[in-house]
Each structure stands twice: as structure tokens, then as C-alpha cells.
């Protein structure tokens, strides 16, 4: 469960990035987070996975008070979350398999587990045939599926997807959305940031709307 109470974040500009944002998301929910560019979606995500701090307010993710974690303990939070970005953030000199396995290496899994889980994650996103390819050799949709496999491989309970279809055409975007829905059906909580109206209209998921840093619908 995620609980946010009166989050306030300012980068020193005229308007704060987030103002008084509160919401609750139950385990196993699928939630769209939407709003115009600059509404504060990415800032909110960064706060959720501990990349940014809040000026005021509290956020609790899976019983962890994020603000109370010190820098060297943040990994305990981040290992519970799978993050997917619009620009994929894949390592170009590693193969598809190595990119996904990287997340397993980081948590100190042994070789056998790494092989098994990486293969399983690639199977889930339908990319086993591309395991030896390098990211630049893949299409945008394929790269995003690698990023999703990487987010999945450590079996997190929460998936944060920040505009995962922002660089993809509508057809591929729908495929990606279906992948997230599949994860959600497997019991994972998914928060997907998007400002694609097609996507929002296509599904009847709960909607959180940010407007200029304020939560106007939760």
C-alpha cells in the first residue's frame, strides 16, 4: 500500500512542483497518473522511489516511511519497486540478457538464479529470441519490453512506469499497456504515468490527475 500525506516539493522556482498532494493506493491496484507536462508526475515518482526528498509531508510505501530512510538504506525501498522509464535506460554495451540480469546481479543473486529469473522475465515479455541482441539493434517497443523485464526480474510488488509509451506508436503502446496489466493480474501494484488520452480512454483504471502540482482527482 502507498500512502502520501500532504506532499510538498519545490525546486526553488515560482511555483512548487507538488503542493499538498495526498492519496492512497491499495495493494494490487492499477492506477493511471496523468496530467500535462510539468504537472509533477515525474517528481511524484522520484519521491516514491527515494530519488528526491519532500519539503513537507510523508510518504509510506509498503510500510516504509521513505523520508526516514537514510541514503545508504534507500536500497531496501528500491528493491521493492520496479521502475520503467520513457527513455528505457538500457545499457547499450550489454546484451538484452545482460541488461535484465544486471538487476539480479545488483541484489547479489547467484549465477543459477540469475540465469533462471532472467530467462523467465524475458519469456514474460516475449523477448527470449532477442536475448543476445544489443539495445540499439532493437525497436523502441522491444527496448521498452526489455526495460519492463528488468523491472520485473527482481519480483517487486510495486511497478512505477513513467510515460513508458511516450516514445512508442499507439499499437505498440497498447501492447506495453497489456504487459503492465498482465503484471497487475499477477498481483502487482502498477502506477503508470501517461498523458496519452487514447490510453486513458482505452481502459477503465483508477485515475490520479495532477494539475500544476496539485492532485485534482485521486
Amino acid at each position: 500500500m502507498i500512502q502520501a500525506f500532504n506532499l510538498h516539493k519545490s525546486y526553488g522556482g515560482v511555483a512548487p512542483a507538488l503542493m499538498d498532494v495526498s492519496f492512497t493506493i491499495q495493494d494490487g491496484e492499477f492506477v493511471f497518473l496523468t496530467g500535462q507536462s510539468g504537472a509533477g508526475k515525474t517528481t511524484l515518482f522520484k519521491i516514491l522511489f527515494g530519488w528526491e526528498s519532500v519539503d513537507r509531508g510523508q510518504v509510506i510505501v509498503d510500510r516504509i516511511n521513505v523520508g526516514k530512510l537514510n541514503e545508504s538504506n534507500l536500497y531496501t525501498l528500491r528493491r521493492k519497486i520496479g521502475v520503467v522509464f520513457q527513455d528505457y535506460k538500457l545499457l547499450p554495451k550489454k546484451t538484452v540478457f545482460e541488461n535484465v540480469a544486471f538487476a539480479q546481479q545488483i541484489i547479489g543473486a547467484d549465477r543459477k538464479t540469475i540465469r533462471f529469473k532472467t530467462w523467465d522475465a524475458l519469456k514474460n515479455v516475449g523477448l527470449t529470441t532477442k536475448k543476445d541482441s544489443y539495445p540499439p539493434q532493437l525497436s523502441g517497443g522491444e527496448q521498452q519490453r526489455v526495460a519492463i523485464a528488468r523491472a520485473l526480474v527482481n519480483d517487486p510488488q510495486l511497478i512505477l512506469a513513467d510515460e513508458p509509451t511516450g516514445n512508442l506508436d499507439p499499437e505498440v503502446s497498447l501492447e506495453i499497456l497489456e504487459l503492465f496489466e498482465k503484471m497487475n493480474q499477477q498481483g502487482k501494484t502498477v502506477i503508470m504515468a501517461t498523458h496519452s488520452l487514447e490510453m486513458l480512454r482505452a481502459r477503465d483504471h483508477r485515475l490520479l490527475i495532477l494539475n500544476r502540482g496539485r492532485m485534482v482527482q485521486s
Binding site: 522511489f49 530519488w51 541514503e71 545508504s72 534507500l74 536500497y75 531496501t76 528500491r78 528493491r79 521502475v83 535506460k89 545499457l91 544486471f102 538487476a103 545488483i106 541484489i107 547479489g108 528488468r150 527482481n154
Partner: peptide, 16 residues
């Protein structure tokens, strides 16, 4: 730097 940032995002410890 991108790789190190990614490591932190994926839950790498400082020691790692």
C-alpha cells in the same frame, strides 16, 4: 554515470 545512476535505481547498495 548513467550506469551508476541505474544501479542505484535498481537497489544497489553503496558498497556494491
Amino acid at each position: 554515470r548513467d550506469e551508476f545512476d541505474l544501479m542505484l535505481l535498481l537497489g544497489a547498495t553503496h558498497r556494491f
